[in-house]
């Protein structure tokens, strides 16, 4: 009885169906545990959390240098910047914009640096629904390979003040 004192000899190993279920559940938990290292080596989508300390000012400088060197156009007043395939790209999050617009090529791999100049932000790439956290003080590096073409939207999905819902960015893939 759950509410009353157990019998003095309550200690006994599981038997029958209960034992079988514990065995099955344990086996399933092993599958759950092994899937992650398996995907780490074999899968193409992993979050390694690669990051370096950076001050907001330094990150802003790097972004400006990147924009100046690689700008290929402008869209709604926001620079469109195309990094070299295999190269570094900088994406700055701040209240309430993603800067600049990145232009990438399908099948090429880029090191995309994400950081924030103020609060925490959430990098949410739609409609793919890929999500990463962006923190001030951390240069979060995603080694990213676009596998589809189009204009993708970055939504901010970490609350960052009253203008949070208007913090929308773009990534163009050709």
């Amino acid at each position: 009885m759950s509410l009353s004192l157990p019998a003095h000899d309550w200690y006994k190993p599981p038997e029958g169906a209960e034992k079988l279920w514990i065995g099955l559940a344990l086996l399933w938990c092993f599958v759950l545990s092994l899937m992650m290292p398996y995907w780490h080596f074999r899968g193409k989508q992993n979050s390694r959390g690669e990051a370096y300390a950076v001050t907001p000012a330094a990150f802003q400088q790097r972004t400006e240098a990147f924009v100046a060197a690689n700008k290929v156009g402008e869209r709604d007043g926001m620079p469109v910047v195309e990094p070299a395939p295999g190269g570094d790209a900088y994406l700055t999050a701040r209240m309430w914009a993603w800067y600049p617009i990145l232009k990438l090529r399908q099948g090429e791999t880029y090191r995309v640096h994400l950081s924030s100049l103020d609060l925490q932000h959430g990098f949410s790439l739609q409609p793919l629904n890929m999500n990463f956290q962006v923190l001030p003080g951390y240069d979060h590096v995603l080694t990213l390979t676009p596998t589809s073409k189009g204009v993708f939207t970055i939504v901010c999905n970490e609350f960052c003040g009253i203008g949070h819902e208007a913090m929308i960015g773009k990534i163009i893939v050709e």
């Binding site: 995907w39 629904n129 890929m130």
Partner: peptide
Amino acid sequence: GTQQINIIAHNT
């Protein structure tokens, strides 16, 4: 809460 699957779920 699976490490990689979280990529398509975090903060949604």
